[in-house]
Design a protein around this nucleic acid. Structure first.
Lengths: 143, 143
DNA sequence: TGTGCCCCCTGTAGGGATTACAGGATCAAG
DNA sequence: CTTGATCCTGTAATCCCTACAGGGGGCACA
């Protein structure tokens, strides 16, 4: 079991590899986001490279605001031999819409913030542009 | 108190107007994000148009992933006669950076999702492009 | 074969943000 | 004045994690 490419990892190693808190890994397993790993005779979890990939994906998706349920929904469809494209495509498209809506909102906020910071004198002007923006926001549609 | 422009609202009305859960309004008041409103003699909260504006801003900011503390930080600076520009500008700039980072990540995800959905046949192809993407994601830097 | 030390195991408790609920009072319309 | 909707307060529950306590495994190294 020496060097080179070790094909399995402990929970701590998986945590370090993916940046996901090791307690959270246990939690993800409990709520069905990460498949139950094999165990050693002593009961220690043994993770595969597949787990690394999945968990990395989950991390990115969660970090971008996708709900655990949504993540699970996509992940569930990726199981071995499970149903495919038609169904997955629909979910993916919904996500795409959400992503685009978020981007639009953020761009709007970005525009506002940037313009505002620019107008800011940096001095102690009681007529602050940022505060103005807060108190009289342009409508950013929806939300 | 008939029609036209009623200048005050009850909690429920404020909730409906802003889309923020009415219990959450109470919560925001408790943690200092929404200023304590006036009360009727019977103890019912009475909100102003200002509350509508602030709460809408809070909602947008929260929806975009800004922490309550961050929201409060900006809001606090907007108080009547409070300190200004220099300080606010700094906060706003930090936010701007965060916003831009988020946008970048989302654009990356959007690109991936869009390309993937496009490749999708929409049929029951066991070789699903979306699932492919999940299992062999291109690195999206950081995260 | 021991024997350390580190990491892992389980169950459970904590925390932040939000939402829900129970039991009672107020509002406002008829 | 009655009544149904809405509000009040305090507290519990929920979700998503994260942390802790106490008791073992895993494994290098002598």
């Amino acid at each position: 079991m020496a060097a080179a490419t070790k094909r399995t990892l402990s929970r701590g190693e998986l945590s370090r590899r993916t940046g996901v808190n090791s307690e959270t890994i246990r939690y993800f397993e409990r709520i069905g986001i990460l498949s139950t790993p094999q165990r050693t005779q002593g009961g220690h979890r043994v993770y595969s490279q597949q787990h690394v990939r999945t968990l990395s994906f989950v991390r990115r998706a969660r970090g971008l605001g996708f709900a655990p349920d949504e993540v699970r929904a996509i992940l569930d469809l990726g199981g071995p031999g499970k149903a495919c494209c038609a169904e997955v495509q629909e979910i993916a498209e919904r996500h795409l819409e959400q992503v685009r809506a978020k981007i639009a909102d953020l761009l709007e906020i970005e525009r506002l913030l940037a313009a505002t910071v620019e107008r800011c004198s940096g001095e102690s002007d009681p007529n602050c542009a940022v505060i103005d923006m807060i108190e009289h926001p342009e409508p950013v549609h929806s939300m």
